[in-house]
């Protein structure tokens, strides 16, 4: 178990980084909530447009979600890819 402290630092930093990256989830949450609220308003005003409003809203939500997804992918990379990479670099 040589370099145990260094490995622990790498793992801890990766975990903290992954947690921080997921703060990106806040933005899409607010944005999508706003979009759904507006869609509800639109349906309340014109109930006959429900179908097209809903499908447009879902498409917009999925596009708005992209930034959150980027955060999630960074978190995945930090959790599963980078620790091994850095530890290998440390040993090799």
């Amino acid at each position: 178990m040589e370099l145990a402290l260094e490995k622990a630092i790498i793992l801890a930093a990766s975990a903290i980084g992954a947690g921080t990256a997921m703060i990106a989830g806040v933005g899409p949450g607010i944005g999508e909530g706003y979009a759904v609220g507006k869609a509800c308003e639109a349906i309340g005003r014109q109930p006959e447009c429900k179908g097209s409003v809903t499908s447009t809203m879902l498409l917009g939500c999925a596009v708005a979600e992209t930034t959150g997804i980027y955060g999630f992918i960074v978190a995945l990379l930090l959790l599963f890819v980078t620790p091994n990479m850095f530890i290998n670099k440390l040993i090799g």
Binding site: V63, E65, T66, I69, Y70, F72, L76
Partner: peptide
């Protein structure tokens, strides 16, 4: 962005 959107949603 197309592939990350699809992959991220299903994987999450």
């Amino acid at each position: 962005s197309m592939m990350f959107r699809h992959f991220g949603n299903i994987c999450s």
